[in-house]
Design a protein around this nucleic acid. Structure first.
Length: 383
RNA sequence: AUGGAAUUGGUGAAGUGGUUAACACGCUAGAUUGUGGCUCUAGUAUGCAAGGGUUCGAUCCCCUUAUUCCAUC
């Protein structure tokens, strides 16, 4: 069965929406944050912990799984869910984002993308058809079209040609798509240009995908520009399909995304920050390695319901982090993921109460303490 | 006791008679947005055991003292 999106309520002052997404592996409410499990594992987190932190859906990566262990092995194992023993919804990225960070511009052709493996330098070639074929075999619940993620800033002409090609690639992928239990999303591109975003979105909508992603953000533009890119995309998407903003997970960006009509987010930020000793808190991001936490015997957040906050102090977590004990990264990952999921829970509540703008103002006041965040540059990486 | 060698930051250590004393670790901060990476970036000795001398100029040469190590009695 395909996924089914039910729009429950629209927030009165913004484009924010409360919804519910039904999949073969469970139903979850949106807005929702999706933890990243690139290589069929959310780094350091077990499936039971994912259920416990009320993660609605996770992301895995076509490119990485294609290289290792290979889609045929995963098919032989019985598909991604069975292979990793995770029986919640799984979305697979197409590999587009990874490939473009590994390829040079001249290696991108109409047929596909030529690039070198990040593992051993082997020459590889990925096409829209190949990406879909791999994802069909992985048997995720949601597959992504193979797209080109252009850099920022990009010339209008370049962006225009890229959008047109990404649309042709979307069509090619859709034509070979053949897994009845899987859904397929189109990806809106177009850089910072509203007319290109509009063109991209409306052409994808004509092809009738099961849901739509907004791509090409967080690649070096400032936050204000990113929010525009999102708005230029969601404006032209249908209400009855789910929308996914790819690769965005800074708390304020999630709020701003929801306000612009986004339903799902994914990001490596919570787990990467965790591995580097950082924790999200409502009072801003904190670095547990800082000396001031040495004798801080309080929780990361007093009112957080995650396993880390229920059981451990900052001083202990700091000790683990500075000693490079694995548990440190695990506890911070659990907290950071749960933080973002709780954030989306709060946003759902705010949508019900039609007070999301108030929620945002309040959040900013606590998180940034008056600092201007709109000019902050995003620093999209890749791979 | 006698002879020899050494003494450079929190640690291990490079180094030179002449602008800012290498590097590593540690420490202190910062970064991190469709994840190769326990990663990346920045800062971190107003001083080279102490005192005196030679010299235009000494961490580097000389003397004295202190401390440490090695060998011999």
């Amino acid at each position: 069965m395909k996924i089914k999106y039910n729009l429950i309520k629209k927030e009165i002052n913004t484009m924010a929406r409360l919804g519910k997404l039904e999949t073969n592996y469970g139903t979850f409410e949106t807005p929702m944050f999706m933890p990243v499990g690139t290589r069929a594992s959310v780094k350091g987190i077990s499936p039971s912990e994912l259920y416990e932190m009320k993660s609605g859906i996770i992301l895995a990566n076509t490119y990485h799984l294609w290289l290792r262990p290979g889609e045929d092995l995963i098919k032989e194992a019985g598909g991604l869910h069975k292979f990793m023993n995770y029986y919640g919804p799984i979305l697979t990225d197409s590999g587009g984002f990874q490939v473009f960070s590994l390829a040079r511009p001249k290696d991108i052709s109409e047929e596909g993308v030529k690039f070198k493996s990040h593992i051993d330098g082997t020459n590889l070639f990925l096409t829209p058809e190949k990406s879909i074929e791999i994802q069909n075999k992985l048997d995720s619940d949601i597959a992504m079209s193979f797209d080109e993620c252009i850099p920022y800033p990009a010339e209008y002409e370049y962006a225009k040609n890229s959008v047109a090609r990404t649309l042709r690639w979307a069509k090619r992928g859709k034509d070979v798509f053949n897994n009845p239990n899987q859904s397929l999303f189109g990806i809106v591109q177009g850089g910072e240009y509203e007319d290109l975003r509009k063109l991209s979105a409306s052409e994808l909508v004509k092809m009738d995908f099961d849901g739509y992603s907004v791509g090409g953000t967080s690649v070096g533009e400032n936050k204000e520009t990113m929010y525009k890119m999102v708005e230029y995309s969601t404006k032209y998407l249908p209400e009855d399909k789910v929308r996914y903003l790819m690769g965005v997970g800074d708390p304020i960006d999630i709020i701003e995304g929801v306000i612009r009509g986004i339903d799902i987010f994914d990001c490596v930020l919570p787990t990467r920050l965790a591995r580097h000793g950082n924790a999200f808190t409502k009072d801003g991001k904190i670095n547990l390695k800082n000396n001031k936490y040495k004798r801080d015997f309080t929780k990361l957040e007093e009112d957080c319901d995650c396993y880390a906050c229920q059981n451990f102090t900052k001083a202990y977590i700091r000790h683990l982090v500075t000693m490079n004990e694995m548990l440190g990264a695990r506890l911070l990952s659990i907290h950071n993921i749960r933080f973002l999921i709780r954030l989306t829970e709060d946003l759902r509540e705010a949508i019900k109460n039609d007070n999301i703008l108030e929620y945002k103002e309040n959040f900013i006041k606590n998180y940034y303490h008056g600092a201007n965040y709109l000019n902050k540059k995003t620093t999209g990486q890749g791979e």
